[in-house]
C-alpha cells in the first residue's frame, strides 16, 4: 500500500503547515487539503460512501471556518514561559508515541481484520434487509438506533448554534 503511505505523509505535511503557519486563512486552507486527502484515502481503502460524505463535510467545515476567520487576522503572542511549555508538550507527545507504538503490536495486522460480527452481516445482509449496499443496510437497519441518536445530536447542535448566534433579545 505504497500510495496510501505517500498520501498519509502528504496529510501529515499539510497538518504541520496548518499548525505552524501564522496566517489564519492559510491555516484553514491547509486543513482543507488534509480533509480532501482523507477523502482520497477512504477511496483507496474501498469505502466510497465515506469518501462522498467526507468530501461534502470537508467543504462545509472550510466554509464555516472561513466565516469565522475572515478579516479577523491578528498577531500571535509568544510571551510567557515559551521554552518550558514547548518542552513539556514535546516530552508528553514522545511518551504518547512510544506507548502507542507498543500498543499497536497487539492489533491485528493490516489487511487481516477480525470479522466476527461483520461476517454475519456480509452473509445475511442482502437476505435480511434487501439492500445491496451493506454499509447503508447497517446504518439504516442493523444499527438504526445509532442513526437516530446521530440525528438527535445534529438537531441539538443546530439548537446550540441558533442559541449562541441569535441577535434578538440580547442586551447591549
Amino acid at each position: 500500500m505504497l500510495e496510501l503511505q505517500i498520501l498519509l505523509v502528504f496529510m501529515i505535511i499539510g497538518a504541520i503547515v496548518a499548525v505552524k503557519t501564522k496566517d489564519l486563512l492559510s491555516a484553514v486552507i491547509a486543513v482543507g487539503t488534509v480533509g480532501l486527502g482523507l477523502s482520497v484515502a477512504f477511496l483507496i481503502l474501498k469505502a466510497p460512501d465515506l469518501a462522498i460524505a467526507q468530501l461534502v463535510v470537508e467543504i462545509l467545515v472550510v466554509i464555516i471556518l472561513i466565516r469565522a476567520t475572515i478579516r479577523k487576522d491578528l498577531p500571535f503572542s509568544t510571551s510567557g514561559r515559551w521554552f518550558f511549555n514547548t518542552f513539556v508538550v514535546f516530552v508528553f507527545l514522545i511518551v504518547f508515541l512510544i506507548f502507542g507504538y507498543i500498543c499497536m503490536k497487539d492489533l491485528p495486522k493490516f489487511g487481516e481484520p477480525i470479522m466476527k460480527v461483520a461476517q454475519s452481516f456480509l452473509n445475511n445482509g442482502l437476505k435480511d434487509t434487501g439492500a445491496t449496499n451493506l454499509v447503508s443496510s447497517i446504518v439504516l437497519d442493523y444499527r438504526a438506533y445509532d442513526t437516530l441518536g446521530e440525528a438527535t445530536i445534529l438537531f441539538t447542535a443546530v439548537i446550540g448554534v441558533l442559541a449562541v448566534m441569535r441577535k434578538v433579545g440580547r442586551k447591549k
Binding site: 460512501d49 465515506l50 452481516f121 456480509l122 451493506l134 454499509v135 447497517i138 446504518v139 445509532d146 442513526t147
Partner: peptide, 9 residues
Amino acid sequence: PLPQALVLT
C-alpha cells in the same frame, strides 16, 4: 462494513 458505518456517523 461495520467500521465504515460507525465512521459515517
